[in-house]
C-alpha cells in the first residue's frame, strides 16, 4: 500500500515537536490562584458599580436591559429640584453582563465592575440593593464604554507577549 510506504516518518515528526516543546518549556500556564494576571481594562466583570451622586433615576438602564434585571424607583416629589432614587435593585442572577445598561446610561452613573470571584451560596445573595452596589475598595469600576477612564487602569497582561512568568 502506497499510504504506508514510509511508515513511521509522520509519527516521528509529530513526536519530535512534542519533544522540542518538552525541553523548551513554553511560558503559557498561569498558576491561578497563586498567580493572577491583570484583567482587561474594559472587563465586563460580575456586579455593576453604581454612583449615587450621578444617578438621576431616569431608568434608561432598566429599559435597555434585555433580561429586565434592573429594578428602579424614584420618589414621587422633588427633593432639591431632583427626584431621589429610592430603590435601585440589580438581580445578578438574571444579569448576563452584556453591558447594554452601562452603554445606555446618559450620566455615566453605572459602570461594569472589575472584580471577579463573586460566587454566592444563595440566589438571594445575588440580588443587590443600592447600598451594596456603590463603589468600594473591592468594587472598582472598569472602563467599559467609558474611554476616558482607560488610561488610568493597569495594562492587561497579554499572552501574545508571553508575560505570564514575569508577573508572579
Amino acid at each position: 500500500m502506497s499510504k504506508f510506504d514510509r511508515f513511521g516518518l509522520g509519527l516521528a515528526k509529530g513526536l519530535a515537536l512534542t519533544g522540542k516543546t518538552l525541553l523548551s518549556r513554553p511560558n503559557i500556564t498561569v498558576q491561578y490562584p497563586e498567580q493572577r494576571l491583570d484583567v482587561s481594562r474594559r472587563l465586563r466583570g460580575p456586579e455593576l458599580v453604581w454612583v449615587a451622586l450621578k444617578c438621576t433615576g431616569c431608568a434608561t438602564c432598566a429599559k435597555s436591559c434585555p433580561q429586565g434585571s434592573i429594578e428602579l424607583a424614584t420618589s414621587q416629589e422633588l427633593v432639591d429640584n431632583k427626584y431621589e432614587v429610592v430603590e435601585f435593585l440589580v438581580d445578578h442572577g438574571r444579569c448576563m453582563f452584556c453591558g447594554l445598561c452601562v452603554e445606555a446610561c446618559p450620566f455615566d452613573a453605572l459602570y461594569m465592575g472589575r472584580g471577579y470571584e463573586r460566587a454566592a451560596y444563595r440566589r438571594g445573595d445575588l440580588v443587590l440593593p443600592k447600598e451594596k452596589l456603590q463603589m468600594s475598595a473591592d468594587r472598582q469600576p472598569s472602563a467599559y464604554c467609558r474611554p476616558e477612564m482607560e488610561a488610568e487602569l493597569p495594562l492587561q497582561t497579554l499572552l501574545v507577549y508571553g508575560q505570564t512568568r514575569a508577573k508572579r
Partner: peptide
C-alpha cells in the same frame, strides 16, 4: 488552545469578555 488563548485575550481587550462578546 495556546493560540486560541492569545486570541481570546485580544477579544477580552476589545470588549471585556472572552466568550460572549456582544
Amino acid at each position: 488552545y495556546r493560540e486560541r488563548e492569545k486570541l481570546l485575550d485580544l477579544f477580552d481587550m476589545l470588549c471585556g469578555q472572552r466568550l460572549n462578546y456582544n
